[in-house]
């Protein structure tokens, strides 16, 4: 393509303390690309995300954000390049939804500053767009799992990075919110953002993804177009189901 991808992994091995759980991972996401990652529980999707974000070191190979090795970047540089939407929001204190979203501005603030009125406006606008405007002042400890998830997505958008990494963003959402989330993510990708998301719903991958990566329990990866990845035989093998079973429901 000639354009430097937003994120690129080569010969990547992921794992903890010298024990690799998956090796030889190749991955490339550019502006407007959506990479969906499918795989059974425990296959290492979250470990992969943590490695991509530079939160844990790669066991082999490397990850480059816009051409620069993630291991050599500061946390602020990484936070300006890629935003993370974790699986869930757990915080022991009653931060308001607005407070949580405002934290996305941290990487843009001078070291000793606190968010400005302009930052507040950005955060409020993002909450409004996620349909959470009326809950901005509500402590997140009082919100439902789905609402917290939407707060995390609003935060990632306010972080204003070219790339979003979403760890099972739809897991705790009801049907209506899943629909809204998919629409929102489609629009973000259409607007030029790169997205990497893990999901347990092949239908989501089919709808959003330009590419699908599968990561099976043995640590083998495969990357290809969504249509091929989501063939029933492939899904059956990935999730270790009998071939004659109805695997696409």
């Amino acid at each position: 393509m000639g354009v430097t991808p937003l994120i690129e992994a080569e010969g990547l091995a992921i794992g903890h303390r010298g024990r690799a759980i998956a090796t030889g991972i190749e991955l490339r996401v550019g502006s407007g690309d959506v990479l969906a990652i499918l795989g059974p529980n425990g296959a290492g999707k979250t470990t992969l995300f943590r490695t991509l974000m530079g939160l844990i070191p790669a066991q082999a190979g490397n990850v480059r954000l816009s051409g620069r090795d993630v291991a050599a970047l500061s946390r602020i540089e990484i936070a300006r390049a890629v935003a993370l939407v974790p699986q869930s929001l757990h915080v022991p204190f009653a931060f308001t939804a607005l407070d949580v979203v405002l934290m996305a501005r941290t990487a843009r603030l001078p070291a000793f500053a606190r968010p400005s009125a302009a930052d507040r406006d950005l955060a409020r606008a993002a909450l409004d767009r996620m349909g959470l405007g009326p809950l901005a002042g509500r402590p997140v400890t009082e919100l439902s799992g789905g609402q917290r998830q939407m707060v995390l997505i609003a935060r990632a958008i306010v972080q204003d990075t070219p790339l979003l990494v979403l760890d099972e963003p739809a897991a705790s959402l009801d049907w209506g919110n899943r629909h809204r989330l998919m629409e929102r993510l489609e629009r973000l990708a259409a607007g030029g953002l790169g997205l990497i998301l893990s999901t347990h719903e092949p239908a989501h991958a089919a709808r959003l993804a330009t590419r699908v990566m599968t990561l099976d329990a043995a640590g083998r990866t495969w990357t290809g177009p969504a249509l091929v990845a989501l063939q029933p035989e492939r899904l059956a093998r990935l999730y270790d189901l009998p071939l004659n079973g109805d695997t696409t429901s």
């Binding site: 943590r50 974000m53 939160l55 500061s74 946390r75 602020i76 990484i78 936070a79 300006r80 935003a83 993370l84 974790p86 757990h90 915080v91 022991p92 204190f93 931060f95 949580v100 934290m103 996305a104 941290t106 990487a107 603030l109 070291a111 500053a113 606190r114 968010p115 972080q159």
Partner: peptide, 19 residues
């Protein structure tokens, strides 16, 4: 401000740009 972000936990605070 940065200290407050650490209330989000290790991974999240780092992903938000805090050493």
């Amino acid at each position: 401000w940065r200290i407050g972000v650490m209330a989000m936990g290790e991974d999240e605070a780092r992903a938000l740009g805090v050493e």
